[in-house]
């Protein structure tokens, strides 16, 4: 692996925080860094981040680096890029790792560019082979996985898809040293002026953002049975989605349709109730992390992509699931 032999940590993880609260996906990236071997440092940038830094110090890492600067109070790409570019230049890590969040997408590509490289985004895995580091990233909307080898001198910037690593796999080792890294960001060079984030009354559901989805198919028989499904969704904290025939019949709005002519989703949990698993449906959901299928036909193709399956009548299984979740 092209890692410089220096006494500094060769792997740098960029933590994400908002208003001083650590985004827990950071732990996934810590797990990735640990899995790659070598000393790991975690950096957190912002203001009022002592708590986040202390939390990170519980990780089994060499160091936690703290970048405090008033110009970093609210997130801006210009501010982040300036601060982190200066950090990387001082620390000279071989790899810089990010969780692939909306914020990462916003600044990390430009940061990597400043550092003379290109971010390898949205990776789902990493392997250290004889020939060096190889990253796995989905392509063509998950139809294929590409094995990608970083080239050039580095540092190599890599972001990992959320869920690609498990946060609880991050080893915690007690008390890592915390070091404040001096960065000074000239506020006048920050061109973006952010306003306060706000939540919008959802007009259209964005299923692509849902963590859990309960999807229902023609096995539900009639619109009058939908409350059953909604109840399960509530118990799971999930959004309700459907196969095309359900939306075609107007039982659910079209923006709830999953599949080639609907939404493509990859939630943490996808529960398919009475869905046969036609290829047009599968292409929209097979990237989900955990797939559960309930179908009375043991040969239904949905089971080919399911992690867990119950062969049975959804009218019996769903109420039982609701009950089991209530316990």
């Amino acid at each position: 692996m092209p890692m410089p032999s220096s006494d500094r940590a060769p792997v740098l993880v960029i933590a994400e925080q908002r208003a001083g609260n650590l985004n827990p996906v950071t732990w996934e990236t810590v797990a990735a860094a640990q899995a790659l071997g070598g000393a790991v440092a975690v950096a957190v940038a912002g203001t009022g981040i002592a708590g986040a830094a202390a939390e990170l110090a519980a990780a089994d890492v060499a160091e936690v680096l703290v970048l405090e600067d008033p110009a970093l109070e609210s997130y801006t790409p210009d501010g982040h890029i300036a601060a982190l570019a200066s950090l990387v230049e001082q620390e000279r890590p071989g790899l810089v790792l990010f969780p692939h969040t909306y914020q990462t997408r916003d600044y990390a590509p430009a940061l990597a560019n400043r550092l003379g490289g290109v971010l390898i985004p949205d990776c789902v895995g990493a392997e250290v082979r004889d020939a060096g580091l190889v990253l796995l990233r989905p392509m063509f909307q998950g139809k294929f996985v590409a094995e990608v080898a970083p080239a050039g001198p580095g540092p190599h910037c890599i972001s990992f898809q959320i869920g690609a690593w498990r946060a609880d796999a991050a080893a915690r080792g007690g008390a890592a040293a915390t070091r404040t890294v001096p960065v000074s960001v000239d506020g006048s060079t920050i061109r973006q002026r952010p306003e306060a984030p706000f939540q919008e009354a959802k007009q259209a559901v964005d299923l692509t953002q849902a963590e859990r989805i309960v999807a229902v198919g023609r096995g539900i028989k009639g619109q009058e049975h939908l409350p059953l499904v909604q109840e399960l969704a509530r118990a799971l904290g999930a959004e309700v989605a459907a196969s095309r025939p359900i939306c075609d019949s107007g039982w659910l709005p079209m923006d709830r349709q999953i599949g080639s002519s609907g939404q493509t989703v990859s939630p943490k949990l996808y529960v398919a109730l009475g869905i046969s698993g036609a290829i047009q449906h599968l292409v929209g959901m097979k990237g989900s992390r955990t797939i559960v299928a309930v179908n009375k036909d043991a040969d239904a193709p949905i089971f080919e992509v399911a992690d867990y399956g119950i062969v049975g009548d959804l009218f019996e299984v769903v109420p039982a699931l609701v009950a089991a979740l209530g316990e």
Binding site: I120, V145, A146, E147, V148, A151, H156
Partner: peptide, 9 residues
């Protein structure tokens, strides 16, 4: 900055 070594299903 990187090369695609292989593509697979």
């Amino acid at each position: 900055a990187w090369n695609i070594v292989a593509l697979r299903v």
